[in-house]
Amino acid sequence: MAETLHSTEKVSVAALISVILRRKISRTIDIKWFVENEAYATHIIALCREQGLTDLNEYVDRFEIMMFGKLSTPIPIPEKFSATKNDTKEFRNTLAPSFEEEVEDLKEVIDPHKYVGGIR
């Protein structure tokens, strides 16, 4: 039971990290592989540390403890800016094309206009 809860929390934190990485550096990661493969996890953690983001570092710390049982890398002191809020115009402009997940799925839909402006 405790193992399952631990695993669930690890996936949650990994998902949060993936969201921040995608927002900040447009890097998409494989969450499932991230929580399973230590080498991949080490690489992604290093990548996260390079960003120097306070919020991201907090999540990486939690993830690293759950994944490896200890912190292997020092926490950078300088804070560039918060990673969880970004209201810049540049970011907002990236929202429209970022519906790519749904657009990709559209290929499987016969009528491309279906589900636009209403579900029924």
């Binding site: 749904e102 657009v103 799925d105 559209l106 839909v109 636009v116 402006g117």
Partner: peptide, 11 residues
Amino acid sequence: RVGYGKVPFIP
């Protein structure tokens, strides 16, 4: 919602 009427909201 963001994108309403422009992109499909696939169930």
